[in-house]
Computed example of a mutant assay.
Amino acid sequence: MYNILIYSIILMFLLMFLLSLLMYVSHKSMKDREKSSPFECGFSPFESSRIPFSSHFFLIAVIFLIFDVELVIIMPVILVMISLKTIDIYIIMLIFLIILTLGLYHEWYNNMLNWV
Rank of each mutant, 00 (worst) to 15 (best):
S48T: 14
I60M: 08
C41A: 12
D32H: 08
E40Q: 05
E47G: 09
E34W: 12
F46N: 11
S44P: 03
P52Y: 01
C41W: 08
P45A: 04
S44W: 11
S54C: 02
S37Y: 11
S44I: 04
S48I: 02
L59R: 07
V62L: 12
V62P: 00
P38Y: 03
F39H: 11
H56V: 12
S55Q: 09
I51T: 13
S48K: 14
S29W: 00
I63R: 03
V62N: 00
S44R: 09
D32F: 01
R50V: 01
F53S: 07
S48D: 15
H56Y: 06
E47M: 09
I51A: 12
H27A: 07
S55H: 10
S55E: 09
F57S: 08
D32V: 06
K28F: 04
S29D: 15
G42H: 01
K35T: 03
R33T: 13
K35Q: 06
L59Y: 13
C41N: 10
F46E: 08
K35H: 05
K31L: 13
K35C: 00
S49C: 06
K35G: 05
E34A: 15
S49K: 11
H27G: 05
F58T: 01
F46C: 06
F64H: 05
K28Q: 04
E47F: 09
S36K: 14
S48Y: 04
K28P: 02
I60F: 13
F57L: 08
K28G: 00
S48P: 02
A61F: 11
E34S: 14
K28D: 00
I63V: 10
K35D: 01
C41I: 09
I60T: 08
S55T: 10
E40R: 08
H27Y: 06
S48L: 09
H56A: 12
P52K: 07
C41P: 00
D32G: 01
S54L: 05
F46V: 10
S55C: 03
I60R: 05
S48F: 03
I51D: 07
G42A: 02
S54M: 02
I51K: 15
M30T: 13
I63G: 01
K31W: 06
L59D: 07
E34Y: 14
S54R: 04
P38H: 04
